[in-house]
Amino acid sequence: MTTVLVLNASYERLHYVSLPHAVRMLVRQVAVVEEAADGRPLGPWPRPKVVRLLRYVAMRWRYRSGPSWSRRALLARDQHVCAYCGGRASTVDHVMPRSRGGGDTWLNTVAACARCNHRKRDRTPSEAGMPLRVRPYAPGWEQVLGS
């Protein structure tokens, strides 16, 4: 399914929504198409790639806490670079394996290529002899939404 970027009325990035959700926003006339994608139009609108809200939305939720963890946001934080070898990353690795109580948190996960992730398995980086090239950290909203 295609995702569509939603901009605030002030052109700030808000979040991504599914294509059907974006079409519903257009039907309700709460957004307009800012950038169209190639393909067949959807009724009277071109296929949206980016939509902009017509009214400004106060983003208090964004300033209360940082973004929640997700696979997509983690790969964006690490810029799809493997934390072990520096190659192209497509998987998520848990520094402290889930089998040992490690969870899906910003400080316990890094992006990894499939080869390094398979090699490390359910061991810590020191046990596997694979030191981390970067230190995990909790990103800000700008970094997560920049993808």
Rank of each mutant, 00 (worst) to 15 (best):
L132M: 08
R24V: 01
V17M: 03
L7F: 11
T2G: 02
H80D: 03
C85R: 14
C116S: 10
T124K: 00
N117K: 05
W106E: 07
R47C: 03
A36N: 00
R52H: 10
R64N: 12
M59I: 08
S10H: 12
Y16D: 03
E12A: 10
R64M: 09
Y11D: 13
P67K: 08
A36T: 05
M59T: 15
H94S: 09
Y11T: 09
Q143D: 09
Q29D: 12
C85E: 13
R71L: 07
D104H: 14
M25L: 12
G102W: 08
H80G: 00
P67R: 06
R72N: 06
P131T: 14
E34M: 10
G101Q: 04
M1L: 05
T91W: 12
V17G: 05
L54I: 11
A58H: 14
M96S: 07
S126R: 10
W69P: 03
R62A: 15
M96E: 05
M96Q: 12
R28L: 13
D78W: 05
H94D: 11
R88W: 08
R62L: 15
V57F: 03
A22Y: 06
W45K: 12
S147D: 02
S68N: 13
L75K: 06
L42M: 12
R72F: 01
E34P: 00
W61D: 13
Y63T: 12
S99V: 11
C116N: 12
A83E: 04
V27T: 07
R72T: 10
Y137G: 07
R24W: 01
N108A: 03
V30D: 09
A114N: 02
R62Q: 15
C85Q: 15
H94R: 10
D104K: 00
L132P: 13
W61Y: 14
A9L: 12
S90A: 10
S18C: 01
G101T: 08
R64V: 12
K120F: 11
S18F: 00
T3A: 03
Q29W: 02
E35C: 08
R13C: 07
R133I: 06
Y56M: 13
G140C: 11
S147K: 01
G146T: 02
V51Q: 03
A111E: 08
P20T: 00
T3G: 01
V81D: 03
A37F: 01
V144D: 00
K120V: 07
W61C: 07
R52A: 14
V144R: 00
A76P: 00
V4S: 05
T2Q: 12
Y63G: 03
A128N: 04
Y11F: 15
S99A: 15
A73S: 13
L53Y: 08
P125D: 10
M96N: 04
P48F: 07
W45N: 06
R100W: 08
G103T: 01
V81H: 09
K49N: 11
E127A: 11
G102Q: 10
A73P: 02
D78F: 06
